[in-house]
């Protein structure tokens, strides 16, 4: 085998191996965001809205709950699951990385719907919801990059 090609393969393997760990760290950020919003929902306190306008409008809308459970609580559960799958994958369990991929694709679809609701139905944005959307996008990107590198 060509020496430089072998080195490149090793580098790709190392990068691919680190990606689940990076995903786990990012998922923790999403978990913190979702837990914060869940707590604020239950305490009924106003959420700071310094970057965009309309946080209250979004967080008190009829879309903020499903069966009486705040959407943010489902988000926290999703991020915790993503974190767990990424950690298991980082320690060598490949099947968990595939499950992680399925989950982040579903999360991204749901996130796209929530962004649509904010933009066109509620016509207001909530910055913590946008942070969560960005985190989901990063998780999806990490997974797609890992797939791309492995395909090479």
């Amino acid at each position: 085998m060509n020496r430089s090609f072998e080195t490149e393969i090793n580098q790709i393997d190392t990068t691919v191996g680190k990606l689940p760990l990076a995903a786990a760290v990012v998922a923790l950020g999403g978990l913190a965001d979702a837990v914060y919003l869940t707590v604020k929902h239950f305490t009924g306190e106003a959420v700071p809205c310094s970057v965009v306008e309309g946080c209250e409008q979004v967080l008190t809308s009829s879309y903020a709950e499903i069966f009486g459970i705040p959407l943010a609580a489902f988000g926290a559960l999703a991020y915790f699951t993503a974190f767990s799958l990424a950690i298991l994958a980082a320690f060598g369990d490949r099947r968990m990385w595939n499950l992680f991929g399925v989950q982040v694709v579903l999360m991204a679809i749901f996130t796209a719907w929530l962004i649509y609701l904010q933009a066109f139905v509620i016509e207001a944005f909530c910055q913590f919801c946008l942070i969560s959307a960005a985190i989901t996008l990063i998780l999806l990107t990490i997974f797609l990059v890992s797939r791309f590198l492995r395909a090479r």
Binding site: T38, F83, I87, L88, F91
Partner: peptide, 26 residues
């Protein structure tokens, strides 16, 4: 093999503790 489970457990505990702290201190 126990390390990832320990990390997951730790994250769960941290989440519960963080949520509780936020709730009580809010």
């Amino acid at each position: 093999s126990k390390l990832p489970l320990a990390l997951i457990g730790l994250a769960l505990l941290a989440t519960i503790a963080g949520g509780w702290w936020l709730l009580s201190s809010s």
